[in-house]
Design a protein around this nucleic acid. Structure first.
Lengths: 338, 338
DNA sequence: TTGTACGCGTTATCAG
DNA sequence: CTGATAACGCGTACAA
């Protein structure tokens, strides 16, 4: 009896057949009270626990979901993953975690291993490529839920936020304060969240009779270092911006670092608003005005929508549900009038 | 041919036996160049990928490791998990993530599901209980690596930091600045990291001819809210502390919040040092002096030590390797002389 | 109510 | 070099 005890071990001990033991432990079929007690006792005695692998091979259900996101290290994603995890635990699901770093070749590799592992479903924040792979997967019957972004034409629920409105609200706030030279540090061009936030920015400028000026539009690829450099470039401009809108948390870090090094005072010399509302936004000097996303809730919702598809397989790849949540502007002290 | 293509599908298409197909695809045994080509071609044609579940049932190897930590939401743990994940991906391992919230009943439940899932190994930051469960697991041949804490008597490698020295360095820094009323906000009594940090605190006080005063020792349970309350209590003391040492990042948040509400100026009125060095420590007002742990490295090491045991099963539960890394005091601006 | 027997998709052994 | 064939542990249809 090297490894873990099996159903046969329990059966032998209880003096019944393996099939019988399986029935009472899995409680299906029918059996007498007497055998029930014998089997239960035997199971407890040998500390039996079912072999999930064997069960999965038979049932084709693993009670495991894949979670494929850009980077667990950022506030938005840790919080969202925690939401998924909490819901998953409640329902006896395990999650296997993968970080794509926004690289589609990483994503593709993970996608492959996840499929090979026969996950019951996938929660993914997709990069720009692999859309056809996902479409095949979804049509093939694997439940998929998109978070943070969606893929036009893919019939899978997507849980996201109204990025355009959130960005517009932030920039409107800046304009109302009298700013006319408002810069933006974007994420990755082509990525929905980045494009939409830019669209919101442009819209708000337009509504305030301001123009989008190419020199004030920077690309930060959602990365701290890129945003650091972008901020430095902005500050070297002849007509430097009086306000900056950064499109996520890591870039907010980079931006603040550059601002600090420049010696400019915030908000007297320059105003800043960031998308995402990490815990630390409250403690910075000055406290940061932010656009907050309900990331924990998004995670819970994502799992719930996935579970719905898993439970009712007929739904997988059939229903397109779009959950678009609202952001909230949290006004702190990083913006001043001009 | 509903589901994924199987070895038999490939074999049929290539005109060979299933066993043969298995050999070339798994490249073991021997086969002719001709069949190799036929099988490879067939596999590509039907987009064959092995069924990991079936393989796991046979080989008893899942290429999956469990990661059981207190809370993915805190900086220390996200970073450490990222380290694990990166190494795991490199070696084709998946990780399944669980958050115990420091509750041993959660931990126990997760532990059970993890073993049921036949993980190849476990990286865990153990709570106070379940030690015997872990001992059984380890003796039973499941590779285990402890992170952040260790369990006396358990023959499993542990990757941690010299908490005592780190804390002592911080408190010595405070004492050197002339502080005599130095408070500490501890984590959870009985948990190694908390106890050791407290020991370092006490040691540093002693070395500076200061006494540990019960009124200045608070319990924060590693939680933000608790630390918030603890800080308020400290500030209401007749002889309030001139400096506070908090034992982790979430508690640093709570503490700063209370400080801010109190209207006290930092560092003029009160000094603060925190264990853990989150990205935002740089941006607070004033920037926070911290004790930094190499958490990303710890994650990578943890996986490497686990993999070593997995690869050489004879090592599992046999060798006790203690990796104790150094912390570094990062002096910023949250501490002043009295 | 109970036992038997087969299959899930691999890996691995044994003849030929 | 190759094809049968037997596990791995569980679920389940079928027969008793």
């Amino acid at each position: 009896m090297a490894g873990r005890p099996t159903l046969r071990d329990v059966a032998r001990r209880a003096g019944v057949s393996a099939g019988m033991a399986g029935r009472v432990l899995g409680n299906y079929g029918s059996y007498s009270e007497a055998t029930r007690r014998k089997v239960k006792a035997a199971a407890k005695a040998v500390q039996y626990s079912p072999n999930v692998i064997a069960r999965a091979l038979k049932t084709r259900l693993t009670r495991t979901v894949g979670v494929l996101i850009p980077d667990i290290t950022t506030f938005f994603w840790t919080t969202l993953v925690r939401g998924i995890q909490d819901r998953a635990a409640r329902d006896g699901f395990s999650i296997v975690l993968c970080n794509s770093d926004e690289e589609s070749h990483n994503e593709k590799a993970y996608l492959r291993t996840l499929v090979e592992r026969s996950i019951d479903g996938l929660i993914i924040c997709p990069t720009l490529d692999n859309h056809s792979f996902l479409a095949r997967l979804s049509r093939g019957g694997t439940p998929v839920v998109l978070v943070d972004r969606h893929i036009p034409g893919l019939r899978a629920p997507s849980i996201r936020v109204d990025n355009r409105a959130g960005a517009a609200e932030a920039v409107t706030h800046l304009a109302a304060l009298g700013h006319t030279r408002i810069a933006i540090i974007k994420g990755i061009d082509g990525v929905e969240t980045s494009d939409e936030r830019f669209a919101g920015y442009a819209q708000a400028l337009r509504e305030n009779r301001l123009r989008v000026r190419a020199t004030l539009v920077k690309d930060g690829r959602f990365l701290k270092d890129r945003a650091f450099a972008a901020t430095q470039e902005l500050l070297m401009l002849k007509e430097r911006p009086s306000a900056i809108f950064v499109c996520n948390e890591p870039m907010a870090s980079g931006c603040m670092l550059a601002l600090k090094e420049s010696g400019l005072r915030m908000p007297q010399d320059i105003s800043l608003i960031a998308f995402d509302d990490p815990v630390w936004a409250e403690y910075t000097s000055p406290p940061l005005t932010t656009v907050s996303q309900p990331s924990y809730t998004m995670g819970m919702l994502a799992f719930d929508y996935l579970l719905a598809q898993i439970t009712d397989r007929t739904k997988a790849g059939k229903y397109l549900e779009e959950v678009v949540l609202k952001t909230t502007l949290i006004v702190r002290e990083s913006c001043a009038g001009v």
